[in-house]
């Protein structure tokens, strides 16, 4: 049986984060949305084109961002989310998305990942698809993340 979209992204997230020393990924809540209201500090948006197409928005707090980026930089402390740190966060979720696409490829669906795009700010209203978006609230080694998955096949 084919793996569900949400499972594919959770598998990919766990696989990439484990390379940086983060423990298992636990799904806390799954819901569906038409419109996103983003109240976390940072969001990385990545577009996908091909047999699988859509957008994925990964949202997280500033605290989580610093921990993730620090882990990517071999434990170097990250005080502020400067351009370098933003770029690292974008790259991290680019890796997660690319990893997910290799899992789709095993189902015979070829797709390409576009450039990651990072945004921050308050009270953000966003639409990332005309299809329903699945929102996954996850815990990754004590860090909270939200994955908003809008995949159109």
């Amino acid at each position: 049986m084919e793996q569900k979209h949400t499972d594919i992204f959770l598998t990919a997230l766990e696989s990439v984060l484990s390379q940086f020393g983060f423990g298992g990924v636990t799904l806390n809540k799954e819901s569906t949305k038409d419109q996103l209201f983003i109240d976390r500090d940072f969001t990385v948006v990545i577009g996908i084109t091909g047999d699988v197409k859509g957008n994925i928005a990964y949202s997280f707090s500033s605290d989580t961002a610093r921990k993730l980026v620090s882990a990517m930089m071999m434990g170097a402390p990250v005080e502020t989310m400067d351009d370098m740190a933003m770029s690292a966060a974008g790259e991290l979720f680019n890796m997660v998305t690319a990893n997910a696409l290799t899992l789709f490829e095993k189902q015979g669906k070829a797709a390409a990942v576009s450039l990651p795009f990072v945004l921050s700010g308050g009270d953000i209203y966003a639409i990332i698809s005309t299809v329903e978006t699945t929102a996954l609230e996850v815990d990754a080694g004590g860090n909270e993340l939200e994955l908003n998955i809008a995949i159109e096949e």
């Binding site: 197409k53 859509g54 698809s129 005309t130 299809v131 159109e152 096949e153």
Partner: peptide, 9 residues
Amino acid sequence: IFMDITMPV
């Protein structure tokens, strides 16, 4: 029928 190309599903 008016038909778009890039659509979900």
